[in-house]
Design a protein around this nucleic acid. Structure first.
Lengths: 212, 212
DNA sequence: ATTAAATATGACAACTTGTCATATTATGCT
DNA sequence: AGCATAATATGACAAGTTGTCATATTTAAT
């Protein structure tokens, strides 16, 4: 987390630092990027940098948090728009999500992020499912807007696990999209294919029907 | 790839280098590890290192290749033992695979590998599905030992895609296991739960039965 | 105006990496 | 054997990085 000093900074200087960092992280991975370049880009002194951030990672995770899609809201809206239908809702969410990431003006940043995504980074782009990150009273929980009638879940926790798992699959698919330089459309299609495997199963039916 | 010089080395020296590197990579990630320590561990000169390997990554990927499970053979055997049954075969494979990784004396190495696994590293632990990596004439293709009667695949390519996807899911699950410090058993169970989602689907049946 | 707190700065030690001229060892040939 | 040539080994080195710290500057508070 950045220090309070960073947030107290005159906007001009703060933005310069952010821009300088984004420039560096757009062409390099977290590991290849270096603070020397960032402070050079931003025209601030090296000593100052360490007054704002603990280290390179600290800054990087701050930027991820700053620029990541508000996927919680997007997911809520998507499920609501599709009346809670699992398949349609997740599909709509994924299409918008993928489009946002892969057509962003921050393409380079996201590309490097996904190509070098480890479990630690993965956690940073997770959705707050239970949640109410934002203190808005209207904020709803995603588990409340998903219609459970058509899916094999008993408890809220089952649903949560599935939602989380599919989200991690979505991120993996985006990673694959960047790696193989797939188009937005192809990445979306790849995700949807996998989503359908998970929803409808790959087994030919009635071999084993899970207890409902 | 290591140079020929490396393979020409007297076994003693070569093993010293490998051991020195494993020591470093067992307590540090690829990025935190440094060549200085490795050559110090191995008691070889810095200059020599660069005669064998291009850089740290080159050595790292060599080690992954050297110590990774021969998953191709394990998968073949597992499916054969279960008469090609998709569910049972993959389950058996995953149980042995997870056990190997998580109970290996190279635990630290694998732990760091999984915790910092990016797409590039992920590729290194993939199975050669089509494959006959080994030139052994007996080597069979995995797609030939899977019984397709109970699964919704039309083409060999469909099957390949599903096999690959589930393998990447397996690796993600192992990653999660390391991150959350799950036991071998819990990691196996987590994988199997997800495997069953994919095989039997999470939808309550006959909502949409895919074309066979 | 004076003092204390907050912020800024760049020189610095400690550490990396990859290279290269030089030294050593091995190999092949007569 | 003796000599030439190729292969291998070595550590000093330039160039780069990181995080710190004593010092300078700015801001705020009385």
């Amino acid at each position: 987390m950045p220090t309070q000093t960073f947030f107290n900074l005159p906007e001009d200087k703060r933005e310069r630092l952010i821009a300088g960092a984004m420039k560096e992280f757009s062409s390099k991975s977290l590991n290849d990027a270096c603070i020397s370049n960032i402070v050079k880009n931003a025209k601030i002194s090296r000593g100052s940098f360490y007054q704002y951030f603990e280290d390179k990672k600290d800054l990087y995770f701050f930027l991820i948090g700053k620029f990541r899609y508000n996927s919680h809201n997007l997911m809520l809206k998507s499920f609501q728009e599709k009346n809670g239908d699992f398949h349609e809702g997740y599909k709509l969410f994924s299409e918008k999500y993928i489009k946002y990431i892969m057509e962003s003006e921050k393409f380079g940043f996201f590309e490097n992020m996904y190509l070098h995504m480890s479990y630690q980074i993965n956690r940073e782009v997770r959705v707050d499912f239970k949640g109410t990150d934002s203190q808005l009273p209207k904020a709803k929980r995603i588990v409340d807007v998903v219609n459970r009638d058509n899916i094999k879940v008993n408890t809220e926790n089952d649903l949560l696990e599935i939602l989380k798992y599919i989200l991690s699959m979505l991120n993996d698919t985006i990673m694959e999209g960047f790696w193989k330089e797939l188009s937005v459309k192809d990445t979306q299609d790849l995700f949807i294919k996998r989503l359908e495997w998970i929803i409808y199963g790959i087994a030919i039916s009635n071999k084993k029907e899970e207890e409902i």
